[in-house]
Design a binder for these strands. Structure first.
Lengths: 221, 221
DNA sequence: CCGATTGTGCCACTCAGTGGCAAAAGCCTA
DNA sequence: TAGGCTTTTGCCACTGAGTGGCACAATCGG
């Protein structure tokens, strides 16, 4: 997971591919700045396309919707997570939840782009203020969970296909991630990736207790 | 929770209110039928408005979006849930999760409209096929969780406002609900509300184990 | 350097969603 | 039950997201 990691994934095949990637990056970066400055509703897609000097048609060949550009950073992480789930060796004996947690931490470790932390924070802040963006992010997360569930069913021994436990474990992971992300985004300054994984570990540690905490009424014996 | 319950909530004040409610109901019912028949994208809002004989402007005074009509049945349940959380007496000693589960079961018990089960099932089936609808539903669910968290902080003794456990517990509840809903919708025939609560109880029972299940690789010792 | 392939720009179009204003319907009082 | 007052509705025009089609330009492969 050092700088050499980038080299291994770097061999971009054709010039075409590289150009495509470059406009994609430009669109994400400019979109985050533009929407942060003028608000998600305050800037139109035409504005964005003008800024990047790309036609609207091209935009929609790269992203599915206006929300999609902004959510790209988080979605990249979820995509890395599903890849980890696919490839990670399963050491029997451990809990399912631990396996999922390790996979997520590994996925975060793969977000080596130095712009990633800042982008995620801009993205989450925008989502917090804009329901349609938030909805889009939640939908992608849910979709990832379903894909992951299929992977688990394939790689692990799960007798009953209707067993709720794997699904619940995945949702717990997503919940922990959401909480960690929210805490991390609220931190002052420019917290880095390690600070995020620290938040993640805190959330993971709290999971077992979340089932057993007792409910104590406020100002009563 | 018998038939007399409806009587107590019935005293509809003015004719205005009743008319409003009636168009709302008509919109929901017609929308579900129309979209089920022709697909969510296959029928436009104008089609719906024509069918109900209402102007598009009036539609948007009743619902926030095209997705919103279809999601109304599930959202009614979540709304009832937040009301339960507000009013239910908190008996100390029990777990937080148990309190949440009881509140959700009580909320389902309040869905006395005989059309509710069918509508929920049509609604969920549409959502399963349409990302934007699904996203809208998830967003509403997430919003409910945040509201509920605020309620818990007000009614219960929670020292640390950043304690992840209440949030995780709420997410677990939502996860159990999603699983139960999905199972229930897939059942053949016309399952009733009690069948749904049965699924809910199954999901609730599986929660503690979801943290502890072990991961066993597929075809290996 | 040339043909095949693939990405891009432009144009016109559909449809969701909004703002404003005038007409109508429901409400309230005498 | 007629009157004025308030709320709701309908209509119209408008913005902006997203799509389909086609011609053009850039890239690739030899």
């Amino acid at each position: 997971m050092t700088a050499t990691e980038a080299d291994r994934t770097a061999p971009q095949p054709s010039l075409r591919e590289r150009k495509k990637l470059r406009t994609r990056e430009a669109l994400i970066g400019t979109a985050l700045d533009l929407f942060t400055e003028r608000g998600f509703e305050g800037a139109t897609l035409d504005d964005l396309c003008n800024a990047v000097e790309v036609s609207k048609r091209t935009f929609f060949r790269t992203f599915a919707s206006k929300e999609d550009v902004v959510m790209a950073p988080t979605q990249d992480m979820w995509t890395a997570f599903t890849e980890e789930l696919e490839t990670r060796p399963v050491t029997g004996g451990g809990t399912l939840l631990a396996f999922l947690q390790d996979s997520l931490l590994a996925a975060v470790d793969r977000m080596t782009d130095e712009a990633w932390p800042r982008r995620v924070r801009l993205s989450r802040r925008l989502a917090a203020k804009n329901p349609s963006m938030d909805a889009h992010g939640l939908q992608f997360c849910d979709h990832t969970i379903r894909t992951s569930l299929a992977t688990l069913r394939r790689r692990l021994t799960i007798e009953d296909p209707n067993d709720p436990r794997p699904r619940l474990a995945l949702d717990l992971l997503a919940a922990a991630n959401h909480w960690a992300l929210e805490r991390w985004v609220e931190l002052p300054g420019e917290p880095d990736r390690d600070t995020f994984t620290a938040q993640l570990r805190t959330a993971f540690a709290a999971i077992p207790q979340s089932v057993t905490v007792t409910a104590t009424p406020r100002a009563t014996g």
